[in-house]
């Protein structure tokens, strides 16, 4: 009789921890459902500081300016020639690096300037595609240079080495005030 009573007392003292896992599971599932892994990535750019007057690109030598115009029908005009967006990267690379020393291409990569102009009716999708191709051209050129000088891709270089290459092949995009021919929507 005494022994039985003792065992009863012990039972009520201990809380069963077996359901703890279930409670934790419930919480876990709640967080799984209500949350999302926030991952934000995109094309990083820096805007020019605000000034009231437009930069004058006519002062630059024409051979150094790579002008890209996009109209309201999402068509490209690159250095006065119509072009498909998928050819832009290759063409821009040739223009910037100028391996054949053509007199109408950039003197050297430091001097190359991209002039981008679009219409207020241009689709954002096209704009990003163009910006992406231009950035891609520069990234590929920087990568090629890193491989030549250091034997490894640009992103694995030391910060200081990256800066040297970045200064040799600087990405300068000048965006002009867009035209307003197309329909906005």
């Amino acid at each position: 009789m005494l022994k039985k009573k003792g065992s009863k007392g012990r039972q009520s003292n201990e809380i069963n921890a077996g359901s703890m896992a279930d409670i934790a599971f419930l919480l876990l599932i709640f967080f799984l459902v209500t949350t999302q892994i926030a991952e934000d990535k995109g094309v990083l750019t820096t805007l020019p500081p605000w000034s009231d007057d437009e930069p004058d690109i006519t002062k630059l030598k024409e051979r150094n300016v790579y002008s890209v115009l996009v109209n309201a029908n999402n068509e490209l005009l690159v250095r006065n020639e119509p072009m498909q967006a998928r050819n832009l990267r290759k063409n821009a690379k040739e223009f910037i690096s100028n391996p054949e020393n053509r007199p109408d291409y950039a003197e050297k990569p430091e001097k190359a300037i991209i002039s981008l102009k679009n219409d207020r009716g241009t689709k954002y999708e096209t704009y990003i595609e163009v910006l992406n191709e231009l950035k891609g051209a520069y990234n590929e050129l920087r990568n090629e240079m890193a491989e030549r000088t250091h034997g490894k891709p640009y992103e694995f270089l030391e910060k200081a080495d990256q800066k040297v290459i970045r200064n040799k092949i600087p990405l300068i995009i000048s965006e002009a005030e867009p035209t307003a021919f197309g329909e906005e929507g």
Binding site: L47, W50, R120, P178, E183, E184, G185
Partner: peptide
């Protein structure tokens, strides 16, 4: 279309928020 984006960019530049 780029119209509204241009307005946004102008406002960002005027507020000196240049990293986008």
């Amino acid at each position: 279309t780029m119209g509204i984006l241009q307005d946004i960019k102008t406002k960002l530049r005027q507020s000196n928020q240049l990293k986008i």
